[in-house]
Structures are given as C-alpha cells and as structure tokens.
Design a protein around this nucleic acid. Structure first.
Length: 478
RNA sequence: GCCCUCAUAGUCUAACGGUUAGGACGCUGGCCUCUCACGCCGGUAUUAGGGGUUCGAAUCCCCUUGGGGGUACCA
C-alpha cells in the first residue's frame, strides 16, 4: 500500500513553527517512503475562519520547500480538499453511520444538555436520544426539527491502538462521551470529518499533535463501525514557548513569516525545527531538505515537548548565511540595506563581504551599517585611547597627520597600495602597525567597534569622505 | 475531578542494563588579529525525588512531585 500522509490545518490565523513542523514531518515521512503528501483545509468551523489564512498556508509551505502532491490548488482524485466543500459527503456518511448503529440522531435542547451538569461542573451526555422510538425520530426529522448526529460509544469495553511514537494507548469506553459528529448546521465536527476524510483520501499514516492522542481510540471506534481499516498514527509532542506554554497561534508566537522578515533563511528554519523533536541519532546538525528526507525516521522522534529556542536557530541561520555564495548574500542583503540609514549610499557590495561573517540574521544589517551615517566629528576623544595598542589622542594626532598626507598625495584610491604605504610609513616612524591603524580607524569612523578593519572602512567611505573626516579630526586635536 | 501522557545541564538532544553520561546552542578561557566578527583549541553545567529488581539502572517496575494534553454543535 502506498504511504500517504496529510497536513490538515484549519485556516484560523498564523502558521507558527509548530504547525510547520507537523507539516514537515508528515512530508518527510511520506517522501522518505516514496509516498504522497497531501494538504487538506479543515474549515468546518466557520466562526473561526480567518481571511487570508489559506493563502498564508500555501505561502509558508512553498517557502519551506514542502510541495504537496495533492491540495486544493492541485487536486488528485480525492477532492474536494477543502472540508467546507465536502458537506454532502459528511452528511451521507453520517446517515450511513446511523444505519450501522454507530451513531444516532439527537434533538436535545441546549437547556437539557446544560441540566446534565453535575455538582463538580462536569457534564456527560446521557444517551437520551439513543432510546427514542423509531417513529418519533422519523416524525421529528420530517417536521424539520433541528438535530445533531452523535457517536454511539459502547457503554463498556476498552478501545486501544498502537501509536508509532507513544506505544499502546488505551482508553476505557466509559470515559468517552457520545460526541457530536454532525452539527445542526450540517457541518461535521473534527471528530467525524477527520475520520471520513482520512479514509476517503486513503491516508495511511496520520501525523498530528498530541492533542489527539487520547481521543484517537474514539475515532477508531468510528472506523470500526464503518468496517474501515484505521490508519497508523504518529502523535507529535508540542513545541513550547516556555516550560508551561505551548506556542500559540493566537498571539502570533514564533510565526514563520516574522522570522523571514527578521532575516532568517527558510532552509535554516526548516533545519532547526526538524531537529526540535527529532534526532538523526548521530551528531550532525546541518541538514538540507533532501538530507532530511533521506534520514527521517520514526525512531528518532521524541516524546516530550520541546521549548523553542531562537538563540540556537539564530546560530544555525548564521551557519547558513556564511555558506551562501557572495552573490546570493548580496541579493538577500539588498532589501535590508535599502531599509537602513545608508540606503542608496556607499557601495553595498563592498559591505556585504564584511557583513557575511558578521551577521546571524539579515535583519542585523541595518544596525551594523548605521554608524556610517551617524558620524559626528566631536565624538569622545577617549576612543583614541587603546591600552593594548598603547594609543592615545597625542599619537592619533601624529597618525592623522601622516595619513592625510599619504591620502592627499595618492593617485588612485587603491587600498592595497595604501596599505603598503601606511605600513611602510608606520615602520619608518617606529609606530606599531596596530597602533597606527587603530588611530586611523577611529578617526574615520568615530566608532570603537566597526564591522571590518581600517582599510576596509576607508574603502567603503571613499577618498573624499576619508579626507574630510581626517581633516575634521586633525583640527580638533590641534 | 476524571482520563491520556511526558520527565537527561539554562535550552535542543545522544545513550535503547555495563561509556570517565556523548554532541550542539548559550555562557566562559585562550589562539588568530588593526577593533568587532568568522575560524580553531579548551572549560562550565545534566540523569526531578524516593523506593524496589539486578553483580550492575539514565535505561526495567512502583510511588511521589512537576509539566503537557483531553474532557465543546474548536480543531
């Protein structure tokens, strides 16, 4: 039998890292086994539907490199792939399930349901409508009375299954309730839709979050009533924001698009989340999507929740940035330069070579280059003092004088040539190279820390700017 | 409350009865070096607690504690 997995999000908002990871694992498992991966939209709760959410799901999967074999946009033979468009299918199967004895009509009012609440605030449906006479049911149905269809859970017995991650899960039927399968608006609940769809779409392995771990026996009872073979299950532990809170869609925690906007690379995000809850078994940390498909295994899945750690993802992202070709980095960095204070000033390309080993996310670029636009000649003179290189303002004055003369007399503004001239001059004057360059760099940047050395800074600034800055410094040191 | 479930450093994880408990992030010391960064070398820190079983337990069993999930006309 062909392996078929699915990602079945409900379009209710952001795609956070947890949702993406579920999709990723379902995709990896399918592809590792030469199977199909499908996308199904679970929009049976119209109240929670969020405009644009479906689009976001497509965009996110695409950015992550996850391509569904079947989806609403690219249907196979199991369509429609949007649950709200499958209403008639659910109704048909719900009524069939009633005939099979696995479900029954319920006409109970909200008030009656509420009256079932006990002193502890717990409520469990009492199967009242299960015992309604056939004729009464037919009459009320014919009269157009609103109804729901409930699952008829056996009053005794144990339902269990073998989860591929957690092992045997057993639940006593008496702890289960006759849940609503088909709502009064004719829409199915998740409890029913997931069963019908997974069966009809020939899903072989259901991969989803642990929130369904203990309700799966209940779903298997439905498969049983229909006489269907249930799929295999892999439940995934949650990704946490901290020790006690799950990542939340509602608050936009750790959402994919935000990370992209902050300058994370999709490959790095995918790599990071793949390792959040799955281990290859060895110490390898960097994986391309293709390698993940190759290596993915159920044995590597963990059973406890994992806290999302942006620090580590940032580090991984840095690794990816450093491996980018120069051209690719320039391309990716450009929008961030355009957003910075030096937008359209200086030569971006001269800067990208300096920045590539110095940023872990592209979003750090604007802050790293801002100083160029913020030069003020009256910066703190103490910057000229550097213990290790034994420099101070007095030495700086000498160095600036020499530098100015060299720069004024140079023909081409070639930093390699200048570098030699500066070195020779420093040596002749018995000034240590480190000291010389420290003073020079401070003079032209006004910054203690710069993303690059003195000559690299000079190269970016250009001859005229260097001259003007050096002159301003010479005059204040005079 | 009841049911399901989880538990190795601050974080992600390896070990599937026998290792000085391994790797990574973080933090930190050093090297490199014109500052910063990259890179390289080193260090720090872990089996939640208590009982068993066993020659031997992070690993198996029980209890406790703590965490997560479910208990909806949400998914």
């Amino acid at each position: 039998m062909k392996i078929r997995t699915r990602f079945a999000p409900s379009p209710t908002g952001f795609m956070h890292i947890g949702n993406l990871r579920t999709a990723l694992y379902a995709y990896l498992f399918a592809k590792h086994n030469d199977g199909d991966f499908l996308l199904r939209i679970e929009d049976t709760d119209q109240e929670r539907y969020v405009e644009g959410a479906v689009d976001l799901i497509y965009r996110t999967l695409a950015a992550a490199g996850i391509v569904p074999d079947e989806s609403p946009a690219n249907p196979g033979d199991c369509g429609p792939y949007i649950q709200s468009e499958r209403k008639a299918i659910y109704a048909e199967y719900a009524h069939k399930l009633v005939e099979l004895g696995g479900a029954y009509y319920c006409f109970c009012s909200k008030e009656r349901l509420e009256s079932l609440t006990d002193e502890n605030g717990n409520r469990k449906y009492d199967k009242h409508c299960l015992h309604l006479p056939k004729e009464e049911i037919a009459r009320r149905l014919a009269a157009g009375e609103p109804y729901v269809i409930r699952q008829n859970i056996p009053t005794e017995g144990i339902s269990s299954y073998e989860d591929m991650v957690f092992g045997t899960i057993s639940v006593d039927c008496k702890d289960l309730e006759d849940n609503i399968l088909l709502k009064s608006d004719g829409m199915p609940t998740y409890n029913f839709a997931n069963v019908v769809d997974d069966h009809l779409m020939r899903i072989s392995h259901v991969i989803r979050g642990t929130e369904y771990l203990s309700s799966t026996p209940k779903y298997n009872l439905i498969y049983k009533s229909f006489g269907w073979e249930p799929p295999r299950y892999m439940h995934l532990p949650p990704i946490m924001k901290d020790a006690q809170r799950k990542l939340s869609k509602r608050y936009g925690d750790a959402n994919f698009e935000d990370f992209i906007a902050k300058g994370y690379l999709p490959e790095a995000i995918v790599n990071y989340i793949a390792l959040l809850g799955w281990s290859p078994g060895d110490n390898k940390e960097k994986f391309s999507l293709a390698e993940l498909i190759e290596r993915f295994s159920v044995e590597g899945l963990g059973r406890s929740g994992s806290i999302f750690d942006e620090e580590k993802m940032r580090w991984l992202n840095g690794q990816y940035i450093r491996e980018l070709t120069k051209e690719r980095f320039e391309e990716l960095a450009k929008p961030f330069f355009d957003k910075s204070k030096i937008a359209n000033k200086y030569d971006y390309k001269k800067f990208t070579a300096l920045l590539q080993p110095r940023v872990e996310t592209l979003g750090e670029i604007p802050a790293k280059v801002a100083f160029l636009a913020e030069y003020t000649p009256d910066f703190d003179l103490n910057l000229y003092t550097n213990k290790k290189n034994k420099t101070d303002a007095t030495l700086a004055k000498t160095v600036i004088g020499i530098s100015l003369r060299l720069l004024e007399n140079c023909g081409d503004f070639d930093i390699n040539v200048l570098h030699e001239q500066f070195s020779a001059e420093a040596e002749a004057r018995n000034i240590k190279k480190g000291a010389f360059l420290w003073c020079f760099r401070i003079a032209i940047t006004g910054q203690e820390v710069t993303p690059g050395g003195a000559f690299e800074m000079a190269d970016i600034l250009g001859k005229e700017e260097c001259l003007s800055r050096l002159r301003s410094q010479l005059s204040r040191l005079a």
